[in-house]
Amino acid sequence: MGNSVEENLKMVRRQIALACERSGRNIADVQLLLATKTVPLDKLQMAVQAGERWFGENKAQELRDKYSLMQQSKEVEWHFIGHLQTNKVKDVVKAVTMIHSVDRLKLGQALHNQLVKEERTMDILVQINTSYEESKFGATPEMAAELVESLSRFETLQVKGLMTIGKLNATNNETRQCFRLLKQLSIQIKEKNIPRVAMEQLSMGMSGDFGIAIEEGATIVRVGTYVFGPRYVPDEYYWNENTEIND
Rank of each mutant, 00 (worst) to 15 (best):
N172L: 10
E75M: 02
A110I: 03
V12H: 03
T175V: 15
L181M: 13
A19D: 01
A139P: 02
P230S: 12
R231K: 10
N3S: 14
L125F: 02
Y232D: 12
I81Y: 04
E7I: 08
N113F: 09
T156G: 06
T219G: 00
G82A: 07
Y238C: 04
M98N: 08
G166Y: 03
L125Q: 03
E52T: 05
E149L: 08
P141N: 04
A60N: 09
K136F: 01
S152Q: 00
L182H: 00
L69E: 15
G166I: 07
D209G: 04
R104V: 06
H79F: 09
I220A: 08
M163S: 01
S207M: 13
N113S: 14
G24C: 05
Q158C: 12
L18C: 06
G56R: 11
N113V: 11
I27M: 15
R176W: 03
R196H: 14
L32R: 07
V227F: 12
T225E: 13
E118I: 01
E244M: 12
E216G: 06
N193Y: 09
T225K: 07
T175N: 14
V221W: 12
Q201K: 14
R231P: 07
E134Q: 13
Q61M: 14
A19N: 02
M98I: 13
W239F: 11
Q109C: 05
E62Y: 09
D42K: 15
T156H: 08
R25Q: 15
K88R: 14
L18N: 11
I81N: 01
